[in-house]
Design a protein around this nucleic acid. Sequence first.
DNA 1: ACTCAAATGGAGGAATTTCCTCCGCTTATT
DNA 2: AATAAGCGGAGGAAATTCCTCCATTTGAGT
Lengths: 194, 194
Amino acid sequence: MTTTAPRLRADAQRNRERIVAAAVDVISEKGPDVPMEEIAARAGVGVGTLYRRFPDRHSLIREVAADMFERVAALAADTVANQPTGWDAVVLLVRHCAEPGLGALSAALRPWLAEHRDRDTELRALADQWLQGFEQAVRKAQKEGAMRTDIGGGDLLRFISLVTCRMPELPEATNRKATTRYVEILIDGLRTTA
Amino acid sequence: MTTTAPRLRADAQRNRERIVAAAVDVISEKGPDVPMEEIAARAGVGVGTLYRRFPDRHSLIREVAADMFERVAALAADTVANQPTGWDAVVLLVRHCAEPGLGALSAALRPWLAEHRDRDTELRALADQWLQGFEQAVRKAQKEGAMRTDIGGGDLLRFISLVTCRMPELPEATNRKATTRYVEILIDGLRTTA
DNA sequence: ACTCAAATGGAGGAATTTCCTCCGCTTATT
DNA sequence: AATAAGCGGAGGAAATTCCTCCATTTGAGT
């Protein structure tokens, strides 16, 4: 093994990062089927450059998804470890995941992920890790008696991806305000009914 | 006026209805941009037939939307009039609108409606009627002190269309169960916090 | 039963969209 | 200054979708 890692030239590395960032943006807005040209344009780069770095759509989206999972998994682990109660952890996790960037991306990526979960073990592992972070927090909160017991970690994820759906026809500010309000309602609904 | 209404032949009438029903189905599942061929196929009809009845996509979707609005507006008026309290009305309305058929369709149609609201007065009138039914119920419930006051009728509609989003990659039974659970959570979240 | 206007299906050409390679020019690195 | 890596984006190939057209079938009136 160890074919010498073919290090990228500085400008190429920069462009690569721009492409991924652009993909996150564009995919969040318009889903994973968005034309490659559009991603390239958003990155300020020619299609050629995009295709050299990511030979097909799959490899690009895969990178975007993996990045997202890593970010979130770390966040989840950290949150669960450092919050005093399970309920606090759940609330914090929900709030974080509902933040504009993350929420929109995960919602947009959901169908694509569902379709490729089976064929990509590594990706599935990352997804499961995320899920398990949630489940852990949920179970803890439920054991504390703070959270209703008919909800699992998966439900919570699905719920978040719903609550964070953008409505692209409305101004962004409206969307953002709506989402934060919905999140609060959701959290209220998750509590044990007194 | 009164150009003699050109009555359709019996079979043509039947096919027309099939087409609309198929459009409702397919659009609910895949959105308003679904190929016409697919709608025709689902209706068990050739594209030619579809195009004779609805010369373009707009006229077909318009019919689907108008049908939906009429159904819902009637329901809303009836509910508000016949429920003892505003809160009861809100709960019932939410439950009805979240039923599989209606919920999925309205969610799928939302972007299309947003785009055409401006150009189609009649359609806008119907949409507004729906909204006002909700607002009336909401205000009443809030006056009773049963419902949190930071939510308007529009929020409620948006919320419903979120909660009823299908996840086509999951089995239908799962979706359905999830939705009913979400609706209950939502309703709990709407109550005045004790 | 017979007639004919109405209705039908779906093949297929036109238009559009998206993909992705290719190559002449530019730029980082040594 | 040399050179290998990187770049943009024009443009041909392929896929998708639209929508017309007409040979054939079918319902309705007599």
